[in-house]
Amino acid sequence: MADVASETITVAVVAATFLVAGLVKGVTGMGLPTVAMGVLGSVLSPLAAAALLLVPSFVTNVWQLAAGPRLRPLAVRLWPMMAAIVVGTLAGSAVLARGDARLTTAGLGAALVLYAVYTLAARQPRVPPRHERWLSPAVGFATGVVTGGTGVFVMPAVPYLQALDLEKDDLVQALGLSFTLSTLALGAGLAAHDAVRPADLALSALAVAPALAGMAAGQLIRRRISPGTFRRWFLVCLMLLGLDMTVRAFP
Rank of each mutant, 00 (worst) to 15 (best):
M1Q: 14
V4P: 06
I9W: 08
G22P: 09
L23Y: 13
T28E: 03
P33D: 07
V43T: 11
P46T: 11
L47Y: 13
L53C: 10
V55R: 05
V59L: 14
T60H: 04
N61Y: 06
N61R: 10
A66H: 04
G68F: 09
L74D: 00
A75F: 13
R77I: 00
L78N: 06
P80A: 07
V87T: 12
G88Y: 04
L90C: 05
A91V: 15
G92N: 07
A97N: 08
G99I: 11
T104F: 13
L108E: 05
G109T: 03
G109Q: 04
A110W: 10
A110P: 06
L114P: 03
Y118V: 11
L120V: 10
P125Q: 05
P129K: 02
A138T: 12
F141W: 10
V145H: 02
T147V: 13
G149I: 03
V154N: 04
Q162F: 05
D165A: 15
L166A: 04
V172D: 00
A174V: 03
L175D: 08
S178V: 10
T180V: 11
T183G: 10
G187L: 10
V196I: 15
P198D: 01
P198S: 02
L203V: 12
S204M: 07
L206R: 08
A207C: 06
P210V: 09
L212F: 10
A213Q: 02
G214T: 08
A216G: 09
L220M: 14
I221Q: 06
R224E: 12
G228F: 05
T229Y: 06
R231T: 12
R232T: 11
R232Q: 11
C237I: 14
L240R: 09
G242K: 01
V247P: 03
P251R: 15
